[in-house]
Design a protein around this nucleic acid. Structure first.
Lengths: 119, 119
DNA sequence: CATCTAATTAGACGTCTGTCAATATAGAGG
DNA sequence: CCTCTATATTGACAGACGTCTAATTAGATG
């Protein structure tokens, strides 16, 4: 029963970085997502979940890949969850995580260099 | 005379997160970039530089936008520089920064959801 | 060369973060 | 209901991080 948290107001955010400067608020919002990805373990977890067959991965599929305690993995999953990058669902004994692809896509769009841009 | 640092070995890194799990090394490498962007001030600096006319911005163009001391801005610029996201060049009294667009593009590519992927 | 401004570096300080061991909660199965 | 496994929460601690002031470096200019 992982608590789903903010699912950050990725609203109007944002034009590509190369087009317009971010407002202070947009920057805070975006930095929350980048912070969530600013750790090697979390990046691997994210990629393991995102690339897993069926679009979801059980925590039990994840912990084995690291030489870290279960609580530490759980902590990292919580950070990813609270950032809005993933969701978790309990089914019986196990908890399954999947990514929020829109959030990833939005981030990708912010970083894209808009060479052939509208202007 | 800002020292140009690693210009991280963004080599083989990486297939989109949704395609393959990252190796531990790839994750460390990528996390360095995300760490550099995991701060609102640095994100704004990056976007201000990236979107500035002429593709570059003088430090003097940047400091005014923040209620932070000049050393703090300098520190953030250094972090961005050492991550390989930007380069700085001194011309006379002023120092001008510009982004490394390939690095941004590479990050964008990693996050993209490869819906219509090759497989 | 003395001095002024732009920018960086050095050092200090409080806060945030990643990790662990210990404990708690949830569901499955005797 | 007791116990076993899977996951999460709590609390502690060391190290990393963002900020500042003070001092330094680089170039311009009298």
């Amino acid at each position: 029963m992982p608590k789903e948290l903010p699912l950050v107001a990725m609203d109007a955010c944002c034009a590509p970085l190369t087009r317009d400067p971010l407002t202070a608020d947009q920057a805070v919002e975006l930095s929350r997502l980048f912070k969530a990805m600013a750790d090697p373990v979390r990046l691997r977890l994210l990629s393991m979940i995102a690339s897993h067959a069926g679009g979801e991965a059980c925590v039990c599929d994840l912990t084995g890949a690291f030489e870290l305690s279960a609580p530490t993995i759980s902590h990292h999953l919580k950070v990813l969850r609270e950032s809005g990058l993933i969701t978790g669902e309990r089914r019986g004994t196990w908890v399954y995580y999947r990514v929020h692809p829109e959030v990833l896509a939005r981030l990708s769009a912010v970083l894209v260099s808009d060479v052939g841009a509208t202007a």
